[in-house]
């Protein structure tokens, strides 16, 4: 079995690993880096549960070869918080009960982060479109969408505050 030395940058940390080339990013994150916050629901790209960010865009880690995504900026749910401070999305999801069983939440949070990073004030329809690749069986998505809206408002307020403070 071909093993290859690879370099992955995950949540800002650089990891050097010797892995079989046919391992997916999902498997490497969970089994080699023990970052089990990234979940899996089908391993075929059919549910969105394993979503992580690569260079700020949501991708399915179950369909990504780890060797193909070296030297890119990978973010998992473990990398969302700012030290002990939850990301505004995490805060809003917790406050509004957007996580029921919680299993789809890591992937959903990351997809939502990509949305807000590119579109800080999305409409409800834009949120639905952006999250349409993340299945959730518990919530009916309603609290999830509301939480994204709340986080967007807070982040916008923070940005406005930071900008006014900088002036």
């Amino acid at each position: 079995m071909d093993k290859q030395l690879i370099t992955l940058r995950v949540n800002g940390e650089v990891h050097e690993l010797a892995i079989p080339v046919h391992k997916t990013l999902l498997e490497v994150l969970r089994e080699d880096l023990h970052l089990t916050g990234t979940k899996h629901g089908c391993e075929l790209g059919e549910c969105g549960t394993c979503t992580v960010l690569v260079d700020g865009q949501p991708v399915l880690s179950c369909l990504a070869l780890a060797v193909e995504w070296q030297h890119r900026d990978i973010v998992t749910v473990e990398g969302l918080a700012d030290g002990p401070r939850p990301h505004p999305l995490q805060q809003a999801f917790a406050e509004l009960g957007a996580a029921q069983c919680g299993y789809c939440i890591p992937g959903t949070l990351l997809t939502a982060k990509a949305l807000l990073d590119h579109n800080p004030r999305p409409t409800r329809q834009e949120i639905k479109e952006a999250l349409s690749g993340n299945l959730c069986r518990c919530t009916g998505y309603i609290k999830i969408i509301e939480a994204v809206e709340r986080a967007a408002q807070r982040m916008a307020a923070q940005t406005a505050f930071a900008e006014s403070a900088a002036r």
């Binding site: 969302l80 939850p86 917790a94 996580a99 939440i105």
Partner: peptide, 14 residues
Amino acid sequence: PKVDAWAKCAGETI
């Protein structure tokens, strides 16, 4: 919030 909300949103729930 639920008592397990923070862990679930942090990806820490095992």
